[in-house]
């Protein structure tokens, strides 16, 4: 066998094996939902004897819909705030010669580096003092703050490449910086906004630590907390737990498969 063919076999073999590693847990999750509790004990590797939908009904009955709705609201509010606020700041940093820009940029990078766990106790006290414990705004506000630095960095790179002529023409027409930003820069920044919004949505939809400490009553819990509740309440009822996971994951997976080109593009832009 020639050297070239061997390399080919290795290349296809490697990506195929890795794909199996990725797919297997998802297949296990879906198959388990249709099995009975007896079946998963007796034959962990077997296929379900019949398609049994009762675990889905059970999973929905615990209020998964409410958790999904809360996650949706938290993601929506946070992402809108992050994109607007970070976009405004990045515009100033990238396009306006302002004395304090250097220091603001340093602060932004520092903000990006600091993880929520490094400020956990005072952050809890802050949200508590604002009266926002057990309110979705108690996670929206800090998540917005933690999302801003990264998004500023993302927009900053984008705005640096922006053609200057448009702004100059607008300045001559008497537009203020504010008007230029909202009427000219924003409408032309579609791709950057999409990238930032997608990235932040994925992150916030899945965020767990801040939600865990701020949201303790069921009405305000987000999806990751809801999944922990499933796991806690039905410790060995794996079919129902997996049904809950399937319901939680499937919508995101479908959205991802439809828009996967944009997802990939938005994340690929990070390295630039």
């Amino acid at each position: 066998m020639s050297k070239f063919k061997l390399a080919n076999i290795f290349a296809y073999g490697f990506v195929t094996l890795f794909s199996i590693y990725v797919l297997l847990p998802i297949i296990v999750m879906i198959l388990t939902t249709f099995k009975t509790r007896r079946e998963i004990f007796l034959e962990p590797l077997g296929l379900p004897g019949q398609f049994n939908f009762s675990s889905f009904e059970k999973a929905l009955s615990i209020g998964l819909g409410g958790f999904i709705f809360n996650s949706f609201l938290v993601s929506l509010f946070s992402v809108i705030l992050i994109v607007i606020i970070a976009g405004m700041a990045a515009y100033v940093l990238a396009r306006i010669d302002f004395r304090i820009n250097r220091y603001v940029y340093l602060l932004i990078v520092a903000g990006f580096a600091i993880p929520p766990a490094a400020v956990l106790v005072p952050l809890y006290a802050t949200v508590s003092n604002l009266g926002l414990l057990n309110s979705i705004y108690g996670v929206v506000m800090p998540l917005t703050a933690f999302g801003i630095p990264f998004t500023v960095i993302l927009f900053y790179a984008f705005f640096l490449d922006f053609p200057k002529e448009v702004e100059e023409a607008a300045t001559i027409d008497g537009c203020s910086k504010m008007q230029i930003f909202f009427r000219i820069i924003i409408p032309l920044s579609g791709p950057a906004i999409a990238s930032a919004a997608i990235f932040q949505t994925v992150w916030i939809w899945n965020e767990f630590l801040l939600a865990l400490i701020m949201l303790t009553s069921d009405e305000v819990k987000t999806l990751p907390l809801g999944l922990m509740k499933l796991r806690g309440e039905w410790s060995s009822d794996w079919p129902s737990i997996m049904a809950g996971l399937t319901i939680a994951i499937l919508p995101v997976l479908i959205v991802f498969l439809i828009f996967q080109k944009y997802f990939v593009r938005s994340l690929a832009g990070l390295g630039k």
């Binding site: 903000g111 490094a118 006290a125 802050t126 703050a145 933690f146």
Partner: peptide, 10 residues
Amino acid sequence: FCTIFIFIPA
């Protein structure tokens, strides 16, 4: 936002 929720807590 960053001051209230990141820098002051830090």
